[in-house]
Amino acid sequence: MVAVKVDPVVERLAFWGIPISFGVMGLKMLAWWVTGSVALLSDGLESTVNVVAAFIAYFVIRYAQRPADQDHQFGHYKAEYLSAVVEGVLIVVAALLIIQEAWGALFEPRLPDAPVLGLAINGLAGVINAGWATILIRTGKSHRSPALAADGHHIMSDVVTSAGVFIGLILAVWTGYAILDPLLAIVVAVNILWQGYKVISNSLGGLMDRALEPDEEAAVREAITTHSEGALGVHDLKSRRAGAAAFIDFHLVVTAGMSVGEAHHICDRLEDAIKAIIPGATLAIHVEPEGERPHGQKVEIEGTVK
């Protein structure tokens, strides 16, 4: 079974996302209460989704890092993709709620009350979100956590929302055109819909056993070419990514007279080289003598004969 190490950095960040999301939501709803702006309300509604998403991300990330067991012998990694899909759906729901609120305000637009105070409060929430989203996205990518990265991208879309609301309300107050408030909310909702689509699309790719990224596969091929001394070549190289884990398998062609011990030594060398560049990788190498290769089948990775 696949061994799993709990990543304390990912789990800690997922936990702190809960109180931070509550704090940001509180600030945004306060800004709406002060001003009565439908655009600020739309911003606050998206933050309520952030709170739900933070809870989901934390518990799913903890579950995904559980050790492999008899029923899940390759680990629980894919649970993170499920979390990311749910978060994407929540983003879409938030966008639809915003459109609903903005549509009603289109017919009775009004300028916000106390705009300076409201924008100052909302601006503070946006700055907090921007810093937090940057941390989550970077850590999610470096630690191969789809749920953490999805949470970061969701919050970054919230930052875009806040920036748009900030600029739009300034224009509305400056020009006196109150209708800019609900129009801005609708534009923000469309952007949020796009962000939700991207989160869902990327997560579904992981659930469908998407292969390693091209640069990762190129690095694997280079490692095989460099460290396969004694073998004749490799074919049928396949891979799939599951959160922090990567699964790679291929056929290693050796001479018919090579001993099991010699072939095993080559496999160990290849495993060490690949795991050095793809942390968390699990390899399955099928060793076959040269005569077993189907007639006419070419070796995929050239240059392995030393």
Score class of each variant (00 low, 15 high):
78 K>N: 10
78 K>F: 06
78 K>Y: 11
80 E>A: 05
80 E>F: 08
81 Y>S: 15
81 Y>Q: 09
82 L>P: 00
83 S>V: 10
83 S>D: 03
84 A>W: 02
85 V>A: 08
85 V>S: 01
86 V>Y: 06
86 V>E: 00
87 E>F: 13
87 E>L: 07
87 E>Y: 11
87 E>A: 11
88 G>L: 11
89 V>Y: 03
89 V>S: 05
90 L>W: 08
91 I>K: 03
91 I>S: 07
92 V>H: 02
92 V>F: 08
93 V>C: 07
93 V>Y: 04
95 A>K: 00
95 A>R: 00
95 A>F: 01
96 L>W: 06
96 L>I: 12
97 L>G: 12
97 L>F: 09
97 L>M: 12
98 I>K: 00
98 I>F: 00
99 I>V: 09
100 Q>K: 09
101 E>A: 14
102 A>V: 08
103 W>V: 14
103 W>F: 10
105 A>C: 13
105 A>K: 07
105 A>R: 06
105 A>F: 08
106 L>C: 08
106 L>W: 00
107 F>N: 13
107 F>C: 13
108 E>S: 15
109 P>M: 11
110 R>Q: 12
112 P>R: 03
112 P>K: 05
113 D>K: 09
113 D>I: 12
115 P>V: 09
115 P>H: 05
116 V>C: 07
116 V>L: 11
118 G>P: 00
118 G>V: 08
119 L>V: 07
119 L>H: 06
119 L>Y: 03
120 A>P: 10
121 I>S: 04
121 I>R: 00
122 N>T: 14
124 L>P: 00
124 L>T: 12
124 L>Y: 09
124 L>I: 15
126 G>V: 12
126 G>N: 00
126 G>T: 13
127 V>D: 01
127 V>N: 03
128 I>V: 15
129 N>T: 15
129 N>A: 14
130 A>Q: 02
130 A>N: 03
130 A>I: 14
130 A>E: 06
131 G>P: 02
132 W>L: 09
132 W>H: 11
133 A>P: 04
134 T>R: 07
136 L>R: 12
137 I>W: 11
138 R>S: 12
139 T>I: 15
139 T>D: 12
141 K>R: 13
141 K>I: 15
143 H>V: 11
143 H>M: 12
144 R>P: 07
145 S>T: 11
146 P>K: 14
147 A>M: 08
148 L>D: 01
149 A>M: 14
150 A>G: 03
151 D>V: 13
152 G>I: 08
152 G>W: 04
155 I>G: 02
156 M>D: 10
157 S>C: 04
157 S>K: 03
158 D>I: 09
158 D>A: 06
158 D>P: 04
159 V>L: 02
160 V>L: 06
160 V>A: 11
161 T>V: 10
161 T>R: 00
162 S>L: 01
162 S>P: 01
163 A>M: 07
165 V>H: 01
166 F>D: 05
167 I>F: 02
167 I>R: 02
168 G>H: 04
170 I>P: 01
170 I>M: 07
170 I>Q: 05
170 I>H: 05
171 L>H: 03
172 A>R: 00
172 A>I: 08
173 V>M: 07
174 W>G: 10
175 T>N: 03
177 Y>G: 05
178 A>S: 08
178 A>M: 06
